[in-house]
Each structure stands twice: as structure tokens, then as C-alpha cells.
Computed example of a mutant assay.
Amino acid sequence: MASLAPAPAQSDAIGHWSSKLITDGYCIIPNVIPAETIHGLDDDLAADFAQTPYCQGGFYGERTKRFGRLLIRSPRARDLVMHPLILGITERLLAPWCDTIQLNLTQALALHPGALPQFPHRDQDMWRGAIGETEYLINVMWPFTRYSKANGATLIWPGSHGAKALQAEPGAAPFAAELQPGSALLFLGSTLHGAGGNNSDDVRRGAIISYCLGWLKPYENQWLAYPPEIARTFDDELAALVGYRQHRPNLGNFEGQCPSLLLKGALPQRIGAIDALRPDQTAMLGDYLHEQRRAACVDS
């Protein structure tokens, strides 16, 4: 998986939190980002929180507001999406199953007083793949306000991840992941979780940002959320994360080339396809072509 090499201190932090996440299915990282950035993002989204209607349906929550496309609603959303520690952890944990990761979701949510506890679930169940063998995504919960047990902090079932997702019942009781703005809760797509009930007089606001394997269909349709005319304003790394890159071999291409081509100005009327293979596939193909050419020379 292609990424910039982290600095030694950051590499140590990535290793530490990755290990916690693999062992427990979740981790809480304190003071990941300045609280001022979070408060600024909350302010930027104030009108969206006020004007967005309540969700419909028992899963989303009828006393909950949710909206996505955070990258076009506030420039501060990029600081969360592209945080180097978070990306480093995500890339390390998902690397065994993909060539590149992708942004799965950016969603702000407000849990209003009277909200019922959410149905406990695992986000990996969006995809009907093998359970207990593959990790499909990493979730990151960013609180905008204090998350407490009273106002519906996310409930986490520790140790319910990985192969234990095959068990009928989790082995441990859930706990409320209480957080302050600036901290982050990370949990695996295989970890059982759900929003708590809001029994307070306060609105619990925050955002969830998630990343998944680059060959999956993401929860939020990134190409509709950020079409080329929008993605063209992103830097290369962010545009790649929202889907404007191929996943080798040749997956997610445009006319046989990397879709980042759409962000670079006018295209010729016709373009030719270009291989985008993994190194092991390139090596096997090279051996195959060498044999084919050698055979052709012998026959001639």
C-alpha cells in the first residue's frame, strides 16, 4: 500500500495504537487534534445541524440528525480525514487485504434528548464477505461535544471483533466510550457497537469518519459526493482517498486509466488503456511474455 514513510516517533505511535486496536477491537486516543479545530468544525456545520431533518427509521434513530459530504461543508473536515496518525493506523491494519484504502464515509450526527439506544451492530455487515477472516474498515468517532454515558456516548463491546464476530453473543458487557473534543475513538468494522441512549438535556454532536478496503463499494458514494469539478479542488492525496485512483489490478479505472485523469483538465476524445498491475502480477506477466516471444522466435 503506497504511503509516505512516517517519522520515527509517529511510527511508534502508529504501532502502539494499531496493537491496541487489534487486541481490543477499539482504542481511545486522547488529544489527537486541537479542540479549537473541532469547535471550529462544529461552528462551520451549525446551519447544517439546525436545518437537517431528523432521520427516519429505527436504525438511524428518529431523534438523531445525520448528514454527509463533510469535505464540501467545511475546510476543517480535511484535518480529520487526512490526519497522519489515523491514516497510518488505518493503512497498517487494512494493508493485508488491499492495495489502497479509500474513504468510506464522512458523517456528522447529532443525538438529541430522548434518543433511544441504537441497535447493536457491526459495520462490516454492510458487505456480505467472509466473517472472522478479513477486516473491512476502520471507524473513527470525533466528538464535537463531550460524549458521556448520559448523553448517548457510543457503546462498545470490547473483544467482540475478528473471529469473535462469529459468536452468537459477545463475551463482555458494553461500556460507554466517554470522550472529550480533540480525542478520537477508533474501532474495527468487526467490533459490535451502537450509539447509547440520550437521557440528558444536551445534544450530543460529533462526526464519524471511516475508511475501508479500496476494492469495496463505500457506504457513501464518494464520486457523487465529490464529482470531478469538486475533487479537482482537492490536493492529490485527498482526491486519491475519495476514489480518484485505481486499485491494482486495474480496478476503478476510467477508459483503462487512473481516474485521476479526470482532474487534470481537458481529455482527448479517445485515450488508450494502460496496465495498472501489482508488482507480483507484473513479474508473472513479464515471465509469460518472455516465454511467448521466445516461442514465437523458435516457430519463425
Rank of each mutant, 00 (worst) to 15 (best):
Thr282Glu: 15
Ile38Asp: 04
Ala9Ile: 12
Cys27Ser: 14
Pro259Arg: 10
Pro143Met: 10
Ser3Gly: 01
Cys212Ala: 14
Ile209Gly: 03
Gln246Tyr: 03
Pro268Gln: 10
His247Cys: 04
Gly129Trp: 10
Tyr288Met: 13
Pro120Ile: 09
Arg205His: 13
Asp299Trp: 08
Asp202Cys: 15
Ala95Met: 09
Cys55Glu: 14
Thr90Val: 13
Ala46Gly: 05
Gln10Pro: 00
Arg293Met: 15
Ala176Asn: 02
Thr106Met: 07
Leu261Pro: 02
Tyr136His: 08
Ala7Trp: 02
Ala295Phe: 15
Asp43His: 12
Leu192Thr: 08
Gln246Pro: 00
His83Ile: 12
Gln281Cys: 11
Asn250Ile: 04
Asp275Gly: 09
Cys55Met: 12
Leu4Asp: 14
Gln102Trp: 04
Ala283Leu: 15
Ile86Asn: 07
Gly40Arg: 07
Phe144Ile: 09
Ile38Ala: 05
Leu71Gly: 02
Leu261Ile: 15
Glu36Trp: 03
Leu105Asp: 00
Leu186Cys: 11
Ala168Gly: 03
Trp127His: 12
Glu36His: 03
Gln281Tyr: 07
Ile33Val: 14
Ala13His: 14
Gly243Arg: 05
Ala240Asp: 02
Trp157Ala: 06
Ser148Gly: 09
Gly206Lys: 13
Leu216Ser: 09
Phe254Ile: 04
Asp99Cys: 04
Leu185Val: 01
Leu224Met: 06
Tyr54Asp: 11
Ala283Trp: 13
Ala176Leu: 07
Ala47Cys: 01
Ala95Asp: 07
Asn198Tyr: 12
Ser190Ile: 04
Glu133Asn: 07
Arg278His: 02
Arg78Tyr: 02
Ile38Pro: 01
Asp79Gln: 14
Glu133Ala: 12
Thr154Cys: 12
Thr106Cys: 08
Leu103Gly: 00
Gly114Phe: 05
Ala13Asp: 15
Pro53Trp: 11
Ala153Lys: 04
